[in-house]
Design a protein around this nucleic acid. Structure first.
Lengths: 293, 293
DNA sequence: GTCCGCCTGTGCGCTGATGAACAAAACCAT
DNA sequence: ATGGTTTTGTTCATCAGCGCACAGGCGGAC
């Protein structure tokens, strides 16, 4: 039973009772309607209608088709309204992914968004693995570093990730506060474990310090944060993290060379949906506040 | 939600997960599949799939469509098997119409047919009004007289309606038996009431007798039969009716000039169905027995 | 009775959908 | 790494399906 359009045509013929009426309802020429019905009957090997000069009277088979196609038409209409409604409505699942280090900033925004749109089920994925937008693993991704180049991705600037150097009071008490960025000898640092540095802060550490000065290394930014708080050494932290911990002392304020751009990335197929657009708007509004502060 | 074929294409894409797989399943080129999906998405204003190099991943809307189209596909498959099955199966309604005078001959045949095909619901319409095949009022019609000429009707010879002249014993006792067909003066006849005679028997009465000899007139053949039985006069009766009543005396045996052809008429749109064919076969088998007798 | 409107049905020219071919990207296995 | 396979996506020529026009028939209205 291929060619569903012919079924639809026959359905309208059965409903209207005439070929002309069906043609008008379908917006096609009545010759097309005749051809569709003839083809469908030929394929089924059964007459669906009795033809006479005043119209088409459905046979038993035609009445059967009429019933089935009627329900199909209803189902499709409901489907269309559901799909179209979903396009304008902000509901259903909405999955966001980012590096774990952005969680302190994103979580409040996402919570507020969820409060504004109660019908949305939010999923926030953070993990070492890169979740792929093109496989539907997430609707929106927060990415750092150079702007992503995937052709099917829509990339927008989100905010600038700034970082300063901080140390815990316990560390300063033990090792003192460096006089300036040119007098760092003897100081211990918390840094990444990666072979090839990617973030500007990582590159600065690699270029400025002797390797043995990076005494505490971890690939996990949250672990680095905990290490700095524990007095393991001086480390890069976002200013908001530092502000949240009174125990931290600023070694060097954030500077432009240490900041890296953060990007909002969406798949082009989902970017136009108002659900994604609403979330992007909320995220960018939050970013505007951050940049102003 | 017009264009059901595009829904069907999208359904196969969602099921196969790839455009190529859907194209193979549908037996079309994969470019066609892409065009259908693009057109459907454009009309809905919502992306149904996320495109990536390894295939198409359905979005929420696409999954919704998949569910709906799955049930639709099942419904259509069942419909097709029902319709196709009904083409070969002898079941459902089967409506026959004839002049009331044929009821004594047809009823036994129809009853036997109904016994052989228990799943058939037989409707036997007899009435003064002519039931029209082209409006679906009947599947098979039994017609007398010249072969019907309607273009959409399939006409087959059924049997020859023979008639003889008979009278009740009471009439013969009162008026005597005519010596021959040339000595009918003074005899009373039962005949039709019609202005224009159609059956050969009616024409013979009109041409042979004085008008006042047709003393009992009725448009209803069964009423004429009752009149002859009651001794109202000599009248034309089918031989089988005469044989069923021992009280009747044959005035003149059936002759060729008094017989008229009876036709089996079906609408061309229904003629090929095996249900109609089965009934036609049963009717013609009965007619063969009648002609042999 | 006669005209008018609506219906089906068919042949013809044409447009839009289809299929073939090619390009390019991504994944997998060797 | 690197070639082979599978996938999407685009361009262009072809053809099938479409709309148009006209014929024919039936029924109702005036």
């Amino acid at each position: 039973m291929d060619n569903w359009d012919e079924i639809r045509t026959a359905y309208h013929v059965a409903r209207a009772g005439t070929v002309s009426g069906a043609a008008e309802a379908l917006g096609v020429h009545h010759a097309t309607v005749i051809r569709h019905v003839d083809a469908l009957e030929a394929r089924l090997g059964v007459k669906l209608f009795q033809r006479h000069a005043r119209g088409y009277t459905p046979t038993e088979a035609g009445q059967d088709l009429l019933r089935v196609a009627q329900t199909t038409d209803d189902q499709f209409a409901q489907l269309a309204s559901r799909i179209r409604g979903r396009g304008n409505d902000v509901s259903g699942e909405l999955t966001v992914t980012s590096l774990a280090m952005f969680a302190p900033r994103l979580a409040p925004v996402l919570a507020g968004f969820q409060r504004d749109h109660p019908r949305v089920i939010l999923r926030y994925l953070t993990g070492t693995r890169l979740f792929r937008l093109e496989y539907g693993e997430a609707h929106v991704a927060v990415r750092a570093g150079p702007p992503p180049q995937e052709p099917d991705n829509v990339v927008q600037p989100f905010f600038h990730m700034r970082a300063g150097l901080y140390a815990a009071r316990a560390y300063v008490a033990a090792h003192g506060l460096p006089e300036g960025l040119e007098a760092l000898e003897g100081h211990r640092f918390v840094g990444p474990d990666a072979e090839s540095p990617r973030a500007p802060t990582e590159r600065w550490l690699r270029e400025t310090l002797a390797p043995e000065q990076i005494a505490f290394r971890s690939p996990d930014p949250r672990a680095q944060e905990d290490a700095v708080l524990a007095g393991a050494g001086i480390g890069f932290l976002p200013p908001w993290t530092a502000a949240a911990h009174p125990d931290l002392i600023e070694v060097a304020p954030p500077r432009e060379a240490w900041s890296s751009p953060i990007w909002l990335v969406t798949h082009v197929d989902l970017h136009r949906s108002s659900k994604v657009q609403a979330l992007l708007a909320a995220l960018k509004a939050a970013a505007a506040e951050w940049d102003a502060a």
